[in-house]
Design a protein around this nucleic acid. Structure first.
Lengths: 327, 327
DNA sequence: ATGAAAGCGCTAACAC
DNA sequence: GTGTTAGCGCTTTCAT
């Protein structure tokens, strides 16, 4: 790997000049610039980001803590963060941890050690863990999806999402609703969906019941068992509001396999609008989270903090009911 | 952010000593070690990875070029690479580019500038682009999923996959097969699936036809159009071998929406075994790619090269037919 | 066992 | 317009 010195030598100038053309900063004569550019190309020179980061004290990369990639919801988030960061001239460094206090701390530590100029945290943890971590991150810190006390947070309008879903089900004639909450451990703010659901049911005087898909049991098999139990325990059930599209899809599959007609016998609405939701049959009615806006707001927030601007403490991104064929 | 100097001062030792305990290298008296550790904890010290990388000349991170996160297949790959790298003590730096010569070069450039100790490239590009890039990457370079000439490559046994899928369909009584190839631009090695399909069809004297899902048209809508056309043009068709589970799922949905019974009227087998494949109804018969093995082999290969070992030029990971309910 | 000092590749004053 | 130089935070000889 050639260095700035090599380039300088080859171009017959000093490293300062090379640095100037590299950063387009300071005055450089056209000839010098030409020579430098030629040398850079010829030597296949790539400025060492480590050295740059070291001397500048920062990195123009944003660190992102994500529970995992291999889940449609989180991978949408990852994709959009990446895209938005790039648009703003930032790189992103992902640190994966499905949770656990120790691991989370390691993630943050890794990000800090990597001199990221800000961190986007995408899921919850216990409040104590937070207080400890947030207190001395030392870099701009924002929460996405889950809101954290004392940290600028970006969340979806989950209350609205819950209302939309529930009202829609009721408007379609459902009298006996079941709600399956998602992984509240990861996405604490999602409990707003549940609250809204309950409230709407009460308001409209509709029978309801709530089940929780346990964090530790988020594998397909465990959901299958849960879904099985739900159908068994609720023979009257004519509508399901699932807190994510994966579970919703599994409900659809189960219902179909048991000979239920959708939506005639049972109506199902999901949450998230991941891409498969429109691809399955029947295509899933769901609440769409606006991944692009979510990510953009998060990136924008850390960029703002970096530039000394005070970001909103809480930003709520609208959701949208996407009516398809399961209702 | 406290530095090694702060720690040294606080512990009453020199920075060399701090460095020694940091790296567990060289002799340090127990007292000194205690003091240093205390100081580090107290100052919440995180060694600057940039500085370390700079002086060591490397990073212990592996760079990965990925077309996108928000696709079940690629996100599985990303997840497994991340996991395996971590197991081997490496970090991973993702660089996202859906293709395009310029962008690809930027990705590689970014990775190089970031001093990654090796690069895993996960999709194809034109041979010229490759020759240019590979020639002077300067770091270990391995290809995953797609095989690249002159580069250690890890691929799935796509020939076997094609055979398995086709034979299965024929064994189930299909007489009129259609194959939908995937994005050959991204996954060049996938054409082996098509070759194997053709060969098997010929061998068994089964009518067949091939359609290609065009790269530029990989959105759901375009696929819908393609699938629509396929059904229209092939009224006799009784079996589909799709080169990825997304398209397969869309075929299932389309067939169902048109009143076909699956598998009685039409049998469908996909490719990849992404997680939704088992969650839809009917659950999809498919060829499972072994993400974990794929990723492990790739990570292992770059680690090997880093350590001076010569890796196999081509590693072929077995695939598996997963029989579910669409056949 | 420990410290002083050189230097990794680069940027940013500061001189000329 | 250009070069010299002092670090950025760390590792690593080399003395002691």
């Amino acid at each position: 790997m050639s260095t700035i010195k090599d380039v300088a030598k080859s171009a017959g100038v000093s490293i300062a000049t090379v640095s100037r053309v590299l950063n387009k900063k300071g005055a450089v004569s056209p000839e010098a610039e030409k020579a430098v550019n030629r040398a850079m190309r010829q030597l296949d020179y790539h400025p060492n980001r480590m050295a740059r980061a070291l001397v500048r004290g920062k990195n123009n990369t944003i660190g992102v803590v994500l529970p995992f990639f291999n889940n449609p919801f989180w991978s949408e988030i990852a994709q959009e963060i990446e895209r938005n960061a790039k648009d703003q001239g930032y790189h992103v460094l992902f640190s994966i941890s499905p949770g656990g206090e120790k691991e989370l701390e390691q993630c943050i530590s890794y990000l800090r050690a990597s001199q990221v100029c800000g961190i986007i945290q995408t899921f919850s943890a216990s409040q104590e863990v937070w207080s400890a971590i947030v207190k001395n991150v030392g870099v701009p810190f924002v929460a996405l999806i889950s809101d954290l006390k004392g940290v600028p947070s970006i969340v979806s309008d989950d209350t609205q999402g819950g209302i939309l879903a529930t009202r829609h089900l009721i408007a379609r004639g459902c009298k006996n609703l079941v709600h399956i909450s998602g992984d509240l451990h990861l996405i604490k703010h999602a409990d707003e969906r549940t609250f809204a659901f309950v409230e709407e049911c009460k308001k409209k005087n509709v029978a309801y019941r709530i089940y929780e898909s346990q964090p530790a049991k988020l594998t397909q098999e465990d959901n299958a068992e849960l879904i099985n139990r739900i159908f068994y325990e609720n023979p009257q059930m004519d509508g399901i509001f699932a807190s994510n599209d994966i579970i919703a899809t599994q409900c659809v599959s189960y219902a179909l396999s048991q000979g239920f007609r959708i939506p005639e016998d049972i109506r199902i609405v999901g949450y998230d609008d991941i891409s498969v939701s429109s691809q399955i049959y029947p295509p899933l009615t769901t609440i769409r989270q606006n991944y692009a806006m979510l990510a953009r707001a998060a990136v924008r927030a850390v960029v703002d903090i970096v530039h000394g601007k005070e970001p909103k403490p809480l930003e709520i991104i609208p959701v949208e009911l996407i009516e398809r064929k399961t209702t």
